[in-house]
């Protein structure tokens, strides 16, 4: 094949690659501006040694407005506190999650809630449960010998 033909193809492929990447970036920008409320944010920094002694609220769920909840969650080796939470379909929940010991992963199975739980950070992430059922909270960051057993539950009722 003629060298100039190949070089033309090569240039074409390069432009195509750049265009493809641009299209992907446009999609990412669109999701960010539109509905990616599940992107975690930091509520504040925290001294991890104070998490269990008053620096962070006792693990609990509270209703701040009708249908709006705030959940204060502690991930610790090897459990989630509270270990079970109950919501209704359509509830809007803001989770505040932190760790008193090592890193954990706050992954709510079947949703896009997937947050790194880092000692020193209070992570904040929002979701709206659309379907009823039982959702597992799976720790997806290695945290020690019992990591595989660090499973919590969220029950969403009709």
């Amino acid at each position: 094949m003629d060298k100039h033909v190949i070089e033309a193809y090569e240039r074409g492929w390069m432009y195509f690659s750049l265009l493809m990447i641009l299209v992907f970036l446009v999609f990412i920008g669109y999701t960010l501006s539109g509905y990616a409320f599940y992107v975690p944010d930091a509520a504040r920094r925290i001294d991890p040694t104070t998490v269990r002694t008053g620096g962070f609220p006792q693990p609990h769920v509270e209703e701040v407005a009708p249908g709006k909840y705030q959940a204060y969650v502690i991930g610790q080796a090897f459990t989630w506190l509270p270990s079970e939470m109950h919501f209704k379909v359509g509830d809007e929940v803001t989770f505040f999650v932190t760790s008193p010991d090592v890193q954990h992963g706050f992954y709510v199975h079947g949703t896009n809630i997937n947050v790194q739980v880092i000692p020193g950070e209070v992570a904040k992430v929002k979701t709206k449960f659309k379907k009823p059922g039982e959702y597992l909270i799976i720790c997806n960051e290695y945290c020690g010998i019992g990591h595989q057993n660090m499973i919590g539950r969220i029950v969403v009722e009709e």
Binding site: S17, L25, V115
Partner: peptide, 26 residues
């Protein structure tokens, strides 16, 4: 997935990561 890093800077790194895909595609 980390809290404590500004989404703006996450986006900057996203754009740059996508740029590194180009030499691999070539």
């Amino acid at each position: 997935a980390d809290p404590g890093i500004d989404p703006f800077w996450k986006l900057v790194h996203t754009v740059l990561t996508m740029m590194v895909a180009v030499p691999s595609l070539v």
